[in-house]
Design a protein around this nucleic acid. Structure first.
Lengths: 121, 121
DNA sequence: CTGAACCTTCAAGCTGGCTTGAAGTCAAGG
DNA sequence: CCTTGACTTCAAGCCAGCTTGAAGGTTCAG
């Protein structure tokens, strides 16, 4: 696959793929006359990056996650120790806002400042 | 309260409070000889902003949320219609990464690329 | 009344995560 | 061979969300 096809199938711009490669998120693909050739595995890698990023991880942190080197089970505990609490906090905040949005359509406050529903159950 | 005390109690810089005011996230406070004087309510507003932001809302979107004007129950449905799906997607991604991190410490993959645990149960 | 600590505005700078543009190379059909 | 479209690199630009710096005004304890 050439870069354009990867981009199209992953729903991103080619510039993003080159950028990810620059910062070490994607491996250096094989080259044919200077042009990048990818195999299917890059698509899965892009999903991993996307999911991790939306879960609040920075590209730097994701690089640690997708890096080759020591086995995953050796690298993961340190990553998880730093990141799990943050992810759990994110989930809690997001659920709080979700619960509030669901509940507050039925409230009669003028502004969120006076809405007791925001402060939780 | 002067701006420094608000900043300290909220755990942010004064520059951030002025910035939030500039972009309409905080109300124009009373002034004494040009200096801002806040009451306690600003602290609650800052919590709202923080929670909403961590739940993935942009400052622009939060401005809609905290704005005065029409009653909340009139403004909220449109905001929720746009934002609830995004928040729910965020929660789903974050839970997926969390579940993976918890499970994967006990896996023997070399890299995340080959870790079937990532793809869910 | 002075000096330290705090406040003001305004413009410019910074980081993360990309995108855009210029200038040039490669591939494939007519 | 020539054109068209996809590719290359590299530098610069952009947006959000702040922070920093300069230059100056205010407050208050001593």
């Amino acid at each position: 696959m050439r870069i354009g096809e990867v981009a199209e199938r992953a729903g991103v711009r080619t510039s993003r793929l080159r950028y990810y490669e620059d910062i070490g998120l994607l491996p250096q693909p094989e080259r044919v006359s200077g042009q990048r050739r990818y195999d299917e595995s890059v698509l899965r890698r892009l999903v991993v990056i996307d999911v991790a990023q939306r879960a609040g991880m920075s590209l730097d942190e994701i690089r640690d996650l997708v890096a080759a080197g020591a086995p995953l089970s050796e690298r993961l505990p340190q990553i998880a120790a730093r990141k799990l609490p943050e992810i759990e906090a994110l989930i809690e905040r997001a659920e709080r806002v979700r619960a509030w949005m669901v509940a507050a359509v039925a409230c009669d406050c003028q502004t969120i400042d006076e809405c007791a529903l925001f402060d939780g159950p």
